[in-house]
Every structure is written in structure tokens, then in C-alpha cells.
């Protein structure tokens, strides 16, 4: 079985900890490291995003990601960019998206809580409209909707985006088991066919099997959340899943591949 990993990070602070728990070679997290690990884990394609673009600055991190990878024509490697409302007025946003696409960017990610803006900010709405026109996927971590910090998620904000942008493939990351405590997004999955779930935080027993039974396998997207989680942990979860081989194939690769192929940039 081969995989398409949506949720892989570089420049993660986890790899710069001084703790001797981290092996020396793990402290360097360059493209070579990713390439080696992807092969070991049968990950044929991956979208890599810069953690620096979340923790420090979206634009600096995005640029550094491309600079790091410039000239590295690695087959199967794509990039994720972090977006804030600034992107709309800093750049000609349509051009920015087209340029990013040329440089193998295939995903935009938003971290509104961490980077201090509203999901439905005035400029974000314009950003969603542009991206919906290109059917360009956007990803948000469920934790970013946890405004109270007590797992009481602002799902209405997400619903508004989905309602207003039915052509926008919207992927909900379930990082760090947040999805185990949220009843809010089941109704959204029922109502909005453009909502997808990334699986790396689906840690509850039989959680993947339960989703497949209730919603089918077409809207589950594989992600490792590496290096927060070793790649093999999540690839093995799919291999061990008690679902049909075609469902496994959908989750592991096909669903994300289809979304990527449906991006419409002339």
C-alpha cells in the first residue's frame, strides 16, 4: 500500500529540543531527512509545510520553505503554505496563488487562533472566494476553532465558510485527539460534501472504522503529522484498519490525489 501524506512538517521546533531523547540525526530536519523517511514508510507523495510559518511568521516561513526546497526536484513532494488575512493585501492574491501553484504548492493552511485572526475575517472571506474558484484545498486544525481552550469549538465559523464556499475543499485536521471530544462536526459532514477529515488525530478506538461505516471512506484524508508523530504510526494504523482494501486505498492515497488533480489553475 502506498500513501499520500497531507500533514508533514519541516522546521519543527520538536527537532531542535536539547533533550537527549531526540537522536542526534533527528535534530536536523531537512529535505534529505524527509526523502529518506518517506521512502521507508511507502509514502509516495507528501505535502510538506513549514512550522516556522505558523510559529513565527507566515510569509517568512513560506518563503524559507521554498528556498530550502529550491532546486530539490523531488518526485512526489508538494508544499503547503500558511495563510493569514495579510496575504490578501500584501500580494495580488490571485497571482500569488498561481505563482505558488507553479512552485508545487498544493495546500493552504490556516491557524486563526494561533495567528490571531477570525476564521471569517473580511480578507479571509475574499481569500476563500479566490481559492474556491480554483478548487484549491484549505486545511484547518480543529484545535484552532477551540476558542475557549476547553474543547468548546466555534463550529459556526466553520459552517459559515462551508456554506459560502461549496466548491472549496475544506480539510479538518484532527490533531492531538481533539476530534475525540467534538460532537460538533458530525452534522457538518452530513451537510457539506466539501468537508474532509484528516486522520492523524483519530486516536479513539475504532474511530476510523466508525467514520467509514457512517460516512464512507471518500472524505477521509491520510496524514502523518510527522514529526509530531512518527510516520509509521499512522501508516500502520491504515494497514491494520478493519475496513475493505478499497476503503484503505481511498484513505491512504486516492482521496487526496483526486483533490489535488481537481485544482483548476490554467
Amino acid at each position: 500500500m502506498i500513501f499520500f501524506d497531507l500533514n508533514n512538517w519541516v522546521d519543527s521546533k520538536h527537532y531542535y529540543l536539547s533533550s537527549d531523547l531526540y537522536e542526534k540525526k533527528e535534530k536536523v530536519r531537512g529535505i534529505d531527512d524527509i526523502k529518506e523517511k518517506l521512502g521507508e514508510n511507502d509514502i509516495a507523495k507528501a505535502v510538506v509545510t513549514s512550522k516556522m510559518a505558523v510559529d513565527y511568521d507566515w510569509d517568512v516561513g513560506n518563503k524559507k520553505l521554498l528556498k530550502t526546497c529550491l532546486g530539490e526536484e523531488i518526485e512526489g513532494l508538494h508544499y503547503g503554505f500558511i495563510l493569514t488575512p495579510d496575504a490578501y493585501y500584501t500580494y495580488d492574491f490571485s497571482k500569488y496563488v498561481k505563482e505558488a501553484y507553479k512552485r508545487k504548492v498544493r495546500l493552504f493552511r490556516v491557524f486563526p487562533k494561533r495567528q490571531l485572526f477570525y476564521v471569517n475575517d473580511y480578507y479571509m472571506k475574499k481569500i476563500y472566494k479566490v481559492l474556491a474558484g480554483y478548487r484549491f484545498p484549505v486545511m484547518i486544525d480543529l484545535k484552532q476553532l477551540d476558542i475557549t481552550g476547553n474543547k468548546y469549538f466555534d463550529i459556526d465559523a466553520l459552517q459559515k465558510v462551508l456554506e459560502e464556499n461549496t466548491d472549496l475543499p475544506f480539510i479538518l485536521e484532527t490533531s492531538l485527539k481533539q476530534c475525540m471530544f467534538s460532537r460538533f462536526y458530525f452534522p457538518l459532514l452530513e451537510r457539506y460534501k466539501n468537508l474532509y477529515i484528516e486522520v492523524s488525530g483519530m486516536l479513539l478506538y475504532d474511530q476510523i472504522e466508525g467514520y467509514v461505516e457512517k460516512f464512507g471512506s471518500e472524505r477521509l484524508i491520510f496524514g502523518t503529522n510527522h514529526p509530531n508523530i512518527p510516520m509509521g504510526i499512522n501508516t500502520n494504523r491504515i494497514i491494520f484498519a478493519q475496513i475493505s482494501e478499497s476503503d484503505k486505498q481511498n484513505i491512504a492515497f486516492d482521496n487526496l490525489d483526486k483533490i489535488m488533480k481537481e485544482i483548476e489553475i490554467a
Partner: peptide, 11 residues
């Protein structure tokens, strides 16, 4: 279990 699926910890 059942908070965490056994398959993660086996891996």
C-alpha cells in the same frame, strides 16, 4: 483502550 486504539501502541 478504548480511549486510544490499540493499533497505535502496537506500532
Amino acid at each position: 483502550m478504548p480511549m486510544m486504539d490499540i493499533r497505535y501502541h502496537i506500532s
